[in-house]
């Protein structure tokens, strides 16, 4: 469906890629660790190596959780939205197929939050 209006109704998206001066938005969520309430968002150049996501952004945010130190990174399951993928840490976001406003979800098997609550 489209909006009903009395006049021509066309506006730009508030979050179009060109509004980010060469960067793109990326959302990140640690599954079954809902203590962080919601995913977080960062704006990064598409050339950013994937390793930076883990070493900097994921670590800075999630290390507060007691499960974080117990993560076995070799078993982590990565998803781009609902699609499972295997990111190459040395390759860029772009080369890993990660585009503007993509949602990276990671699951840490065996770690299900405080007292297995999902939090």
């Amino acid at each position: 469906m489209t909006v009903k209006a009395l006049a021509d109704y066309r506006f730009k998206s508030s979050d179009a890629l060109e509004n980010y001066q060469g960067k793109q938005l990326l959302y990140i969520n640690w599954e079954k660790h809902r203590m962080f309430s919601r995913p977080f968002v960062v704006a990064l150049p598409p050339e950013t190596p994937f390793s930076v996501i883990v070493d900097k952004y994921i670590t800075d945010c999630y290390r507060y959780h007691p499960d974080f130190a117990r993560i076995d990174w070799s078993t982590v399951v990565w998803q781009n939205s609902n699609t499972v993928f295997s990111p190459d840490p040395v390759k860029s976001l772009k080369e890993n197929g990660i585009g503007h406003k993509d949602l990276i979800r990671f699951t840490t098997p065996g770690l299900n939050g405080i007292a297995d609550t999902g939090y």
């Binding site: 109704y9 998206s13 508030s14 938005l25 968002v41 960062v42």
Partner: peptide, 16 residues
């Protein structure tokens, strides 16, 4: 969709 693509999201505005 034409209406909601204009949504003001505070964190996105900050990143812009």
């Amino acid at each position: 969709p034409e209406k909601y693509i204009q949504t003001y999201i505070s964190s996105h505005q900050a990143l812009q």
